[in-house]
């Protein structure tokens, strides 16, 4: 996993609540055995007017000229709800997003983002609203500083938090499986005490 330190990028505002992972990456694109090839299908049903994905929908935020190259997705509450498919964060990451900012995330989606190094940032409803308003006024670029836990732009600076280990894992690009495999003795000691039925 790549290390995450600071990131400055253009914001794409997705002004919809309860965006589910079926919308982020519909089921017909889950039939892959590889980890790549999902970005092109991100938000497929909203992004394209046709099922084949040939005709971009000009109304959809990610198709608008002013948001080309966006790397920060600004979203509304309960982002990433529904299916546990990690293909959703994979698709967002492959499309070019490094950061998702929302007032709340679904639990599984949030964990999946952390595990692949895509930074999910929770801000208050009020802060999110300010960012949507700023974005509506013209191109919004935000600076994300993970070590200092800040989101800033000009005179605004909002702070966010992650759990200690999640913060460390993102900053250091920790191989979480390798990390746990270093603790096999503790796991084996636990197993030795388990009841027979377990």
């Amino acid at each position: 996993m790549e290390k995450f330190n600071k990131h400055t990028g253009l914001v794409a505002p997705l002004d919809i609540a309860n965006v589910d992972t079926d919308q982020i990456i519909p089921k017909q694109f889950l039939q892959k055995t590889e980890r790549v090839g999902f970005g092109v299908h991100l938000f497929h049903d909203s992004r394209y007017l046709d099922s084949a994905g040939k005709e971009p929908n000009p109304e959809f935020v990610l198709n608008k000229p002013e948001y080309q190259g966006a790397s920060i997705l600004l979203a509304r509450e309960n982002f990433g709800c529904g299916s546990s498919r990690e293909h959703a964060p994979w698709a967002l990451e492959e499309f070019g997003f490094k950061v998702i900012i929302a007032p709340s995330f679904a639990d599984i989606f949030y964990g999946n983002c952390i595990n692949i190094g895509l930074l999910p940032i929770k801000l208050t409803e009020d802060e999110i609203e300010q960012l949507f308003q700023k974005s509506a006024q013209g191109e919004l670029t935000l600076e994300i500083d993970l070590p200092n836990n800040t989101v800033s732009c000009g005179d605004i600076s909002f702070s966010f938090s992650l759990s200690k280990f999640q913060q460390y894992s993102l900053e250091e690009g920790v191989d979480s499986v390798g990390w746990t495999l270093n603790k096999l003795d503790i796991i084996e000691a636990f197993e030795a005490k388990m009841p027979a039925w377990q």
């Binding site: 546990s84 964060p89 599984i108 964990g111 692949i116 499986v177 746990t180 495999l181 796991i187």
Partner: peptide, 14 residues
Amino acid sequence: GIGTSEVEHVFATQ
């Protein structure tokens, strides 16, 4: 429910 990175973590470490 878990994501695929977690599936891998369970495979390798239980």
